[in-house]
Design a protein around this nucleic acid. Sequence first.
DNA 1: CAAAAAGATTGAGTTCGTTCATTTTTGAAG
DNA 2: CTTCAAAAATGAACGAACTCAATCTTTTTG
Lengths: 204, 204
Amino acid sequence: MTGLRERQKADRTGRILDAALRLFRAQGYDAVRIEDIAAAAEVSAGTCYNYFSTKGDLLLAIVSMEVEEVVGAGRAVVEAPPPDVELALRRLIRLYYDHSLNYLSKEMWRKAMAFSIEAPGTPFSQRYTELDAMLVAQVSALIAALQKRRLARPDLKPGVVGQIVFNTLNQMFIEFVKAESMQLADLHRMNDAQTASLAALLRG
Amino acid sequence: MTGLRERQKADRTGRILDAALRLFRAQGYDAVRIEDIAAAAEVSAGTCYNYFSTKGDLLLAIVSMEVEEVVGAGRAVVEAPPPDVELALRRLIRLYYDHSLNYLSKEMWRKAMAFSIEAPGTPFSQRYTELDAMLVAQVSALIAALQKRRLARPDLKPGVVGQIVFNTLNQMFIEFVKAESMQLADLHRMNDAQTASLAALLRG
DNA sequence: CAAAAAGATTGAGTTCGTTCATTTTTGAAG
DNA sequence: CTTCAAAAATGAACGAACTCAATCTTTTTG
């Protein structure tokens, strides 16, 4: 089942991803050439293109892993939500934001988001879009959980509200990564303000 | 005041913009080389870079003109809003959407939005961001006008609601330009549905 | 086990955005 | 009208993403 070819393939994929992440973080996305990644991964430039269709798609593969992690971390919040709409939303969104710079730089986020709009058809662009949908679903699930606990107006459709909340948090995140000087603390403040407004709408 | 140099400069800027718009529409953004634009505008490639910092910024200059037009057209709706929240929002947003493909292709929008995230510091990227803010302000002004006419809950801050509405319409537009097969009619349907939900929240 | 087929790797070559030293044009001063 | 400085245009040269024909490695077949 796991032939040599298969193992080598997985190994090379891992080496390319590791090298790319390390170099992107250290030198910045633009400054790193595919040849540099190839050299660090001990393959040729051409081989990188057998595994990832473009440099942008390779970046999105890395970013997608980060988003997968955050979706995993978010489950805990949805399963045991704080006993208040505002607190609950704030907590989930802070989790997303705080995770965002663990492995990735603002430049990497900018390039990744740009690429996912520019080239929506590549494999990891589609994956990234799926993951965004999973985040929407997760926020929606949180709303639903709060409604079940009678902490939010029961007449609002969780999916609609979830999408609205996601749009807002996503837009603020874009603003954040676009402004190199903006700090996480600033983003938190924006989030707290917006969440307060939204929470007012969502409470009975 | 209008020396030769000044006139030539304006003339060249115009020729480059015209040529770029025509070629981007006819052949697609990626297929058009800076040299092609330069040739059509009867200048050299290097000259294009005296006027626009990158190919992406040249595109954003074109897209910005389109957005300026749409902001102008939107004023009429804000000044004489239809007598219902849902109708009013729907009308303004449809105006935005219907204008969007007058001069620009989906590919151009994708590239433009991508570039504005990727390179937020270039002159026309900043201009584009300003124009987005103007659209937010315009939607907010519409909400305020409706409140004044007692057609919307008076306790909601127009700015907050305007930003939420804009985020939603913008997100749907991104989905639209990402899916080459999606038609304007589909976008209208999405808009009608979302607007109905939002209008329910905004009515007294 | 040998031979052939299938699958991957390779790196030299192509393309295109961008830069920059040089040349040309414009406007001002004498 | 001539001279000079500043501004602008030019296109050759550069660099990096990406392609592809040739080569090598793994798997399958007889």
